[in-house]
């Protein structure tokens, strides 16, 4: 099963729901990896929804596992992209055509949902028309508070910043604008004293 129940946390940490079919003229669905399962559940709940659905899917290591099932759900458009970054121009283009009544569904990793949420809100889509559902990896997108570099798919605490090389601890403090959690130097007060990395939520 690709669902994970996040323990209670601080108020800046996002919480995610369960995608539910909503009436709308058009539906934009963006998912990565196991996020496809949430879309397939949506299709099972309301097959009609997909007739007006544009699905953007990034398999991210899941290979072809979800491609055929997504095709079989018969979306109006299915785009399978190699990475989130590569899909951004497409997402922006699609959002630029959006009309009142568009429903947005985001599913998969926190990094994907956070970034796609920013694109949608920047395009003027109201929060009330955007749903999210976490599936799959609990990896985090982290901003290094020191050098400002983003490290994607962080699985351990602490971790090494991909940009400046400092070892950072993983905070639950989250910025929607950066679509990232905050990483802070772990050995500032005791240089070199770095605990062994522990897998997140292990």
């Amino acid at each position: 099963m690709s669902t994970f129940r996040f323990p209670p946390s601080i108020t800046s940490r996002p919480v995610y729901g369960t995608l539910a079919p909503r009436p709308g003229k058009a539906h934009l669905m963006i998912a990565d990896a196991e996020g496809a399962e949430a879309l397939l559940d949506l299709a099972a709940a309301d097959p009609e929804l997909f007739a007006n659905a544009h699905v953007i899917f990034i398999p991210k290591g899941t290979g072809d596992r979800f491609t055929e099932p997504l095709k079989a759900a018969n979306p109006s458009i299915l785009h399978v992209g190699p990475s989130y970054a590569a899909s951004v121009p497409r997402i922006r283009r699609v959002l630029s055509d959006a009309h009142m009544g568009l429903q947005v569904y985001l599913a998969g990793t926190e990094g994907l949902m956070g970034q796609a949420m920013n694109e949608a809100t920047a395009a003027g889509i109201p929060h009330s028309a955007i749903q999210t559902e976490h599936r799959g990896s609990v990896a985090r997108r982290m901003q290094c508070v020191h050098c400002k570099g983003i490290t994607e798919d962080v699985m351990t605490d602490p971790f090494v910043c991909a940009h400046c090389g400092l070892t950072l601890f993983v905070r639950d403090h989250y910025s929607r604008r950066h679509a990232a959690f905050q990483g802070v130097c772990i050995d500032a007060e005791d240089p070199g004293n770095i605990p062994d990395p522990v897998e997140l939520y292990s």
Partner: peptide, 17 residues
């Protein structure tokens, strides 16, 4: 606290920690 990180947050979010 970091303005660059907290900018755009609401009252409860920037006080979250």
């Amino acid at each position: 606290w970091s303005l660059d990180f907290d900018i755009g947050m609401n009252f409860f979010e920037w006080h979250a920690p």
